[in-house]
Amino acid sequence: MKKIVALLPVIFLSTTFLSTGVFARDQIKVVGSSTVYPFATIVAEKFGKGTKFKTPAIESTGSGGGMKLFCAGVGLQHPDVTNASRRMKAKEFKLCNSNGVTATEFVVGNDGLAFSNNKNARKFEISIMHIAAALAEKLPRGGGLEENWLKTWKDVDAFVAGNATGQPLIGLPNTPIRVLVPPPTSGTRDAMGSLFMKNGHKKLGTYADVGKKGAKKLREDGAAIEVGENDNLIIEKLAADEQLFGVFGYSFFDQNRDKVQASIVDGVALNFENIASYKYPGARPLFTYVKREHLGVVPGIKEFFREFISTKALSMDGYLYPAGLVPLSDADFKTETGKLKDFPAVTIK
């Protein structure tokens, strides 16, 4: 008897390891962006409760982390779907290809980057030039690049007015720059890098100086404060500190309108209409990628996407609208539903 007890863990381990890789799976596994996560989970729950299939399990890993897992290979130990709040990068596409993974790309809707602060603080009306100047790692001065020396919003105002032609002072307050930003693994950070930082530098006329790579870099002297993938934490911090700003997706702003307000950027307010029309400079599409090799292997993937890419979910009357997902235009929506027939492979250069 004692021998058996002593042998238990050995038996346990050996059976576990010998049976590796052959775990059948009837549950769809989804990884990826924390911005798409709230929408994907709603679809998953409806899908699970309304069909005979299991509810897909969804992990929030960030866009970058999701791509890494998704592209790791074909086989049931790898996820079937990954969400991204930016497009798949060429590098990731190559990784996928080298591991035999091909993907179908769906655009599920639009989102807008909120540049928000406390409801009781002053509402900012700024431009992406100001955001870029405030958060850039380096800025040009006297013919060379220097570590960002701007300390307050007033400094930023003066710098922008001095650099961009025809840009007057807009009277930003003399308060320190402190902005909560998402971590580098997040798609929201990528989107912020291109929509606010890169475009801001371009408009500001500093793009040539900081270069393609430098344009997306954020300063590391404490003015840009990196927080984890926890957007609720950003809201809590904004609610507690009136000088703080935060960058996060529209749905979080929408859910917390009683605590935070979104700045008007380039004269455009953050709302549904301006995101849908892409008037708002922080508007961006949200993506989801499905592994074509797993279609028909894991049951329900096609059905899941028929639920996801449907008017029931994505339209103005759809159930994702109240959650803060900005619907696609009719033409775009038609393109996406067209892909549901044969799930074409995407190529990214």
Binding site: F23, Q27, K29, Y37, T41, A44, E45, G48, K49, K54, T55, A57, I58, E59, S60
Partner: peptide, 17 residues
């Protein structure tokens, strides 16, 4: 190891999500 996951179904076995 991926146990931070949204899960509606109640797990029934040791290899379930």
């Amino acid at each position: 190891i991926g146990m931070v996951v949204f899960l509606v179904d109640i797990p029934t076995g040791f290899t379930d999500t």
